[in-house]
Write a protein that binds this DNA or RNA. Structure first.
Lengths: 222, 222
DNA sequence: TTTTACATCACCAATTTTGGTGATATACTT
DNA sequence: AAGTATATCACCAAAATTGGTGATGTAAAA
């Protein structure tokens, strides 16, 4: 009897987990060695169970899929990762591929394609569902995405400090408020704000907020 | 042999459908008589197969769960509906209950609770997952909900002119710009802005933009 | 008819933002 | 060692925003 492929599932929707468990149980090649409802401690759990393949959602509480992927590459794990997400945003796809994911499926995909994906990545190949392939094609061809790419570049050039200040601006805080919160001079805050406006090519704080909301740089709640 | 409970599944995520199929297949009491990946023609398909229970997501292409529920009550169907959604927004829960749904589960729920829910609604009872029960409790105690209601009131009190100006503010236009666009004095524009800020209880234009985006008062594109 | 709501405008003072330039220190690359 | 990126701060002037009060005309509602 040959070794089964060890699989770990991570998704905050337990119905989906339970469904996948039922699906994977039908095939003797696969063995689900664990599952997680959030990203907290996920990397360790995967390592513990020595899973070959991790099937993971992006949106998870505590720690999202992006952060988990980052941790994986930092710690140099060899476990293959398949992203199973509702979203097919080209930016997101590009990001997870860059971070070393071996496959990407949307939740619109059929259950069977998951089995194919697992086989493929286990054998060291990559696997993308057809709609994701289309999106990837878009990234490399379409001029349509110019704007988005420009924005992406801009986002990439935002420093962590600037992002922090952007967050406070999006909470209706004034320059002075932010200065007090961070124990820096309001002048410094305004410098950061100006640099942000220049980088993001907007004309005012309103523009900053719009950019942040459009590109999900901040979370609107609280 | 007694009659099986006939079930129809509707969700735009096929992996979830496939998962649920696998789960439901384990129990001989249930029979899945059909499934749909969108809301188009869903009502007719459910009627055709004479399903007892419909398990449905809210977010679906073509026609969402709310519209489907509306159609159900218009046509007077007796098929029980269980909503299976990612969201637990009190407003949404209230809405679907009003529209006659018999159950509401979040996708965070365990797969087994779906079986319980099906049994319950088939017997004419209602079924809500525990986190949904909490939300319903919130609606009646109105702790959480107060904010939302306040916001709704505020929205209702915005005049059309104010809304128009809010739109321009959300396009990064200055008071003077807006005045020129509308052929009114910048002073008037600022008065409108001030009234808006007072009504919406925000401290700055940034607050206005946040309010507008949160409540979909404007469209972010262009 | 009186009241209320709406849109309009003005004036004012205090504060904030915007848009520059320039400087310093630290850390990291090449 | 020189260059680059980042975070820090200062100073300045112009422009915009904010927070008031008060006033007018119009239209709709009580």
């Amino acid at each position: 009897m040959e070794t089964k492929i060890k699989i770990h599932l991570a998704d905050d929707h337990q119905v989906l987990i339970d469904g996948l468990l039922a699906v994977l149980k039908t095939n003797p090649l696969f063995e689900v060695v664990g599952f997680s409802l959030d990203g907290e401690g996920l990397v360790d759990r995967v390592a513990e169970n020595d899973a070959h393949v991790l099937i993971m959602d992006i949106n998870m509480p505590e720690k999202d899929g992006i952060q988990v992927l980052r941790e994986f590459s930092e710690k140099g794990f060899t476990c293959k990762v398949i992203i199973l997400s509702s979203y097919d945003d080209p930016k997101l796809i590009k990001e997870v591929i860059k971070l070393g994911a071996s496959g990407y499926l949307t939740k619109q995909s059929a259950g069977e394609s998951i089995l194919d994906a697992i086989m493929a990545v286990y054998e060291g190949k990559q696997y993308f569902s057809s709609n994701i392939k289309d999106k990837i094609f878009d990234i490399f061809t379409e001029n349509n995405h110019r704007e988005a790419l420009k924005a992406e570049d801009a986002i990439a050039n935002i420093t962590t400090r600037e992002l922090e200040i952007l967050g406070y601006i999006c909470e209706e805080k004034s320059g002075r408020d932010i200065g007090e919160l961070l124990n820096i001079s309001p002048n410094t805050v305004e410098t950061h704000r100006k640099n942000l406006m220049k980088k993001l090519k907007v004309k005012s704080s309103v523009g900053l907020v719009l950019f942040a909301t459009k590109h999900n740089l901040i979370n609107l709640n609280q």
